[in-house]
Amino acid sequence: MSNRPELLAPPEIFYDDTEARKYTSSSRIVEIQAKLSERALELLALPEDGVPRFLLDIGCGSGLSGETLSEDGHHWIGLDISASMLHVAVEREVEGDLLLGDMGQGLGLRSGVIDGAISISAVQWLCNADKSSHEPRLRLKAFFGSLYRCLSRGARAVFQVYPENIAQRELILRQALQAGFGGGLVVDYPHSTKKRKEFLVLTCGTVQTSIQTSKNEYDESCSEDDNSDDEESEEVGVSDRNRPRKRQRTNTKVKGREWVLRKKEQSRRKGKNVPADSKFTSRKRRTRF
């Protein structure tokens, strides 16, 4: 596995002029970004009424993912912390508006104005503390809180994330849910180490939209790994994880005649008024009692 950029330097230093230009010049990276952006846009599930939407691209970098939004006809704002990446975006004359900002400081947008948000390979940077003042949990909280406020009701946010481990994924997901979002994780190609892609799909507000169904056939997914045209995903619902364990019902046997006789003898020794034993002792009463 290649070195993770989060472990080398903060994003505004790692993506300097050289790295920003190299990143944008690589045709392989351009292709990967385009595919991830198309998938994120698909998961965004925007209504198909032909009206362009106003979207937010968090961690837009040099505008590779924003280009997919423009090709679909949408207008977008891009936010990134790397000035070098944004300068490359300006050179490439991207159509979206660009902002230099730190998502961990909050987005600084007005309430309810964004129709949807995407982010490609950016949110996991928040899990790293690059300065002494950085606290990952608080930065994630500031980010998701401000995102929740600026999204309109019923809007969605789709983040392709690249978490380092399970704890990081859990941290990101927990902070998102605590901010008020619903939704969960969509994993494409879960069984392939190389092709596995994780999308955090978050919904804002209580509007009922259909969650995309997942494919779970193991054999089919294995054979489909070689077919790059196919798309399949496995959904891990948050509600499934939080469901409490079902209590096991214990099969309690009905007491027999011996038990009843023993209990009556106990009561007699205690001095209680106990009816005499007979052949009817411990028999079931009529239903019409």
């Binding site: 704002i77 508006d97 902002l99 909050g106 987005l107 600084g108 007005r110 104005v113 964004i114 600026c150």
Partner: peptide, 13 residues
């Protein structure tokens, strides 16, 4: 920066 973006930006201090 467009005015549509300016209409959404607020101070985050």
């Amino acid at each position: 920066m467009r005015l549509i973006t300016h209409n959404m930006l607020s101070c985050n201090i």
